[in-house]
């Protein structure tokens, strides 16, 4: 019994050691062969709407509350795209911020009403401990995001 427990413990430690560094997978396995540029998706969202894509970029932000989205920096300056997963399907730890990721999902383009923008703006501000100016919302807005299914993140 003691020997079995010892072997089990060693196996566990070896597994942990093997996973330390390198890459960590979240959600489903990546299957799309070709990598799309985030800048291309942002430039022509309608062309990609509903399509399954694989993108790569640095993780520049992570959902603070539930780990249900990450924001990937584009290959072009001043651009990023949100990679959103259903709550609980994937939980992205906050400390992934700054790591490089390859992520796969379906591009989604939708229009968000003024009310919904204010609601989510207030929620984000509360998470950040800042304030949200309702006047910054001037009309309905088109939101582009990737409905995420799987991601591979460089851990070191």
């Amino acid at each position: 019994m003691k020997r079995s427990l010892f072997v089990l413990l060693i196996a566990l430690l070896v597994t942990v050691a093997a996973q330390a560094g390198g890459k960590k997978n979240y959600g489903k396995e990546l299957t799309v062969k070709e990598t799309s540029k985030i800048s291309d998706i942002i430039a022509a969202p309608e062309k990609f709407n509903g399509k399954r894509v694989k993108v790569k970029g640095p993780i520049v932000d992570v959902c603070k509350e539930r780990g249900c989205w990450i924001k990937l920096g584009s290959d072009k300056e001043f651009e990023s795209i949100r990679f959103k997963v259903d709550d609980g399907v994937i939980v992205f730890p906050l400390d992934l911020k700054g790591s490089n990721a390859v992520a796969e999902g379906v591009v989604s383009v939708r229009t968000v009403s003024v009310e919904d923008q204010i609601k989510s703006g207030k929620k984000m501000a509360a998470e950040e401990g800042t304030t949200f100016d309702e006047k910054s919302v001037t009309g309905p807005k088109t939101i582009l995001q990737i409905k995420g299914e799987g991601a591979q993140v460089e851990t070191k």
């Binding site: 640095p58 520049v60 920096g73 300056e77 001043f78 400390d95 911020k97 700054g98 790591s99």
Partner: peptide, 17 residues
Amino acid sequence: PRNFFRPDPETAQLFYE
């Protein structure tokens, strides 16, 4: 840094562990 990113022309972010 692990990564450097500019979300807009007025902001620069440097990411370390």
